[in-house]
Design a protein around this nucleic acid. Structure first.
Lengths: 207, 207
DNA sequence: ACCCTTCTGTGAACAGCGTTCAGTGAACTA
DNA sequence: TAGTTCACTGAACGCTGTTCACAGAAGGGT
């Protein structure tokens, strides 16, 4: 049945057009600016039509969120090529912060909007490679595990917990910057530098 | 003029009643649940009446936000009594994380909602004691300055930047927990412990 | 070429949102 | 008591997400 094939293609195409318009609206005016009627206007269809291809506004935001997280993953992935686990962790931090600062609306949508979006990224759906969130976390866990195996870790904690600690801390730098705008007067990049430097060598002078 | 005095009292009283209702709604259903009509229902007035006492829904959220930040300040303040700056910093962290976890809706409203709320907390309005945000930051800056004066800091960075770095990192622990719910599987308290431990002593074994 | 079915797209409608405002009635002043 | 002030109301406006009866084009069978 050739028509159903074509129809399938058109359906995918329509969804893509909707998501493109939605993405543009979010990037321009933030998540609150995302409106079904605005999307409909942009793609020159009636609002109701969108509901033939998406279950709800939330479903569209959901897809943008996953898409955004995949972009984040792609942005930090090159760090994985670095052999030395310590250098790798540093580069991951640099890339993570840079992505957050350069894509504020995307980062907000993922981590500072409705909790259900971020939650879904870390939910285990029994897939082979795990959820996107766990895939990202694995980069950190792996680096810490290598450091542990090489006897380079002074601290006695599981790599998993260390990875979550590092992610939280770096997230804080990005999130606080995006939340307050002006508060951390120190630039995020400098804060990240300070954080990693301190994490590495400790805050205090040897006694 | 006794009537205007009474009227002034009634006006303050009405504002308090509105804010009480608004706070209850936010604590129960989150910020999105805060609706002028819901407030009006709760206090048994017409929606329009609220606008005689508050400029907008935003203004109400604004006051809740300030109020919440003052509660956060009050929650961490006792740490200021600790003489040793290092111990003081640790206690500040404990109290900060505890407040965030125990008051998720309040913390969300302050730091994870509309950026303008958090921004206003750090804006300098030329007051003597500075903005509430800067007041809170001063606690951290002071502790780092003491450590520096006592020659106990190994790292060569301004106390101000170190304070912002620490706040960001601790914020990250709270914010990521509130944003993802389940993601950092490690409990926030444990992550904070790991963070401070690592910040203090460094991540790596001495070569 | 025709009819009949299938299905895409429409636009009006519903409930709820923040906000405004003419109008009402009670309270205060003189 | 008459006049004025003012708190309060409730309907309205324009916005939101979402639904649905209906129109009309496309597809399939003969």
């Amino acid at each position: 049945m050739a028509t159903t094939d074509r129809r399938e293609r058109e359906k995918t195409e329509f969804r893509k057009i909707v998501l493109d318009a939605a993405r543009r609206i979010v990037l321009e005016g933030g998540f609150d600016a995302l409106t079904m009627r605005k999307i409909a206007d942009a793609i020159e269809y009636a609002p109701g039509t969108i509901y033939l291809y998406f279950q709800s506004r939330d479903a569209i935001a959901f897809e943008l969120c996953w898409e955004g997280f995949e972009a984040l993953l792609a942005a930090v992935a090159p760090a994985g090529a670095i052999a030395d686990p310590q250098e790798r962790l540093l580069d991951l931090g640099v890339r993570y912060v840079r992505f957050g600062i350069e894509n504020p609306q995307t980062y907000r949508l993922i981590f500072m909007g409705d909790p259900k979006y971020a939650t879904s990224l870390f939910e285990d759906r029994g897939k082979e490679e795990g959820s996107p969130g766990m895939q990202a976390l694995a980069l950190l866990v792996g680096a810490f595990a290598e450091l542990r195996a090489q006897g380079r870790l002074a601290i006695d904690a599981e790599p998993y917990a260390l990875a979550e600690m590092l992610w939280s801390a770096v997230h804080g730098i990005v999130a606080l910057h995006l939340a307050c705008g002006q508060f951390p007067e120190t630039p995020p990049e400098r804060l990240r530098e300070l954080l990693t430097q301190t994490l590495l060598h400790g805050l205090f002078a040897a006694p």
